[in-house]
C-alpha cells in the first residue's frame, strides 16, 4: 500500500523542530510499524538524507522502549499494543499518518521521535525496589500469598514503563506509571515492609521531575499498551495517605 507520513523532525538540520512529509509506495500490510519506518530509513540513507531517529529494542512489546504518538494515539490507534506490535494492516492504502514524539516537559526531546525518559529511572531509584538482604534462598511457599493479591500485583507488574500514560494524559501526569510500580511492589508482603517510605519518596521524585497532577481523566488507562487500570492510582493514593500515619519512615 501507499502511505504519506508526516513525521516530527527535531535536532540536527531541523533545529527547532518541524514536520517533514515522506511518501512510501510499497508498504506490506504484514510489516510492523517499526519495520515500515526501517524501510523509510533505508530509503533516506540511500538518498544520503538523515534517517528518522526512533527508539526500539525488543520489538516484542515487553521492553517499553518504542514510543511515539501516531494519529493522536500514543502507540497508535490499536488498543493494548506497543508500536512495535502494531501492524500495518490496521492502516489503509492512501492513509496519511502523523507521527509525533511523546510530549511532556519531563520528557525532553533528544532527537526526532526520541525522548529522554530518564525521569522514570530517577523515580524508580527513589524507591521502586525491594531491599533484599542476602542469605539462604527462602522456600517458595514460606510466605502464603492470597491469589487475589498475587494477581493484583501481577497486573500492576505488567507495566513496561514506556511512558504512554504521560504522553496520553492531558496533564502529562506520570501517576499511572508510578502507581503501577507502587502497587506491584507494595501489595506483596516482601514489598510492604518499605511501603510507606517507597510511596513517599517515589511521589516526591515524580513531583520534582515536573509531571502534572492527576485529574482522574482516564486517558492513561485508555492508551496504556499493557492496559494497567486507573484503580492502581486509587491504591497508590490510599497507600500514600496511610503513609502519613505510618511509623515507617523517618523525618
Amino acid at each position: 500500500m501507499k502511505l504519506t507520513l508526516k513525521i516530527w523532525r527535531e535536532g540536527g538540520q531541523y533545529k527547532k523542530g518541524q514536520f517533514q512529509t515522506y511518501q512510501l509506495d510499497n508498504v506490506s500490510e504484514h510489516m510492523s510499524f517499526l519495520e515500515m519506518l526501517d524501510v523509510l530509513n533505508e530509503d533516506l540513507i540511500a538518498k544520503k538524507e538523515e534517517p528518522v531517529y526512533f527508539e526500539h529494542d525488543c520489538r516484542e512489546g515487553i521492553c517499553g522502549t518504542c514510543s511515539m504518538v501516531i494519529n493522536g494515539h500514543p502507540h497508535g490507534p490499536n488498543g493494548g499494543t506497543t508500536v512495535c506490535q502494531l501492524h500495518m494492516r490496521f492502516f489503509k492504502d492512501g492513509d496519511t499518518i502523523t507521527i509525533e514524539p511523546f510530549r511532556a516537559k519531563a520528557f525532553p526531546i533528544i532527537k526526532d521521535l526520541v525522548v529522554d525518559r530518564s525521569s522514570f529511572d530517577r523515580i524508580i531509584q527513589a524507591g521502586g525496589y525491594i531491599s533484599v538482604n542476602t542469605g539462604q534462598a527462602q522456600d517458595g511457599n514460606a510466605i502464603p500469598i492470597e491469589k487475589e493479591i498475587a494477581s493484583r500485583s501481577m497486573d500492576a507488574a505488567a507495566c513496561i514503563g514506556c511512558g504512554a500514560c504521560v504522553a496520553a494524559c492531558p496533564n502529562a501526569s506520570a501517576m499511572l506509571f508510578v502507581s503501577a510500580k507502587v502497587s506491584h511492589l507494595t501489595t506483596l508482603p516482601q514489598g510492604k515492609v518499605e511501603g510507606a517510605r517507597r510511596v513517599h519518596n517515589m511521589v516526591k521524585q515524580m513531583d520534582e521531575e515536573g509531571f502534572g497532577f492527576c485529574s482522574n481523566i482516564g486517558a492513561c488507562e485508555a492508551e496504556c499498551p499493557k492496559e494497567i487500570s486507573v484503580e492502581t492510582i486509587g491504591m497508590m493514593n490510599s497507600e500514600y495517605l496511610s503513609s502519613i500515619f505510618s511509623s515507617n519512615g523517618k523525618d
Binding site: 504518538v69 493522536g72 510530549r103 525532553p108 492531558p170 485529574s215 481523566i217
Partner: peptide
Amino acid sequence: ISIKNRRARGNVRYAVKSKTKTPWASRNM
C-alpha cells in the same frame, strides 16, 4: 493545579488533537 497541569505538557503541543476518548467534564473542570 490546572495551570500547572497545562504547563506539564511542555512548550510544543501535539499537532494532532488527542483521539483518546475521555469525559469532557474531566478535561474542563
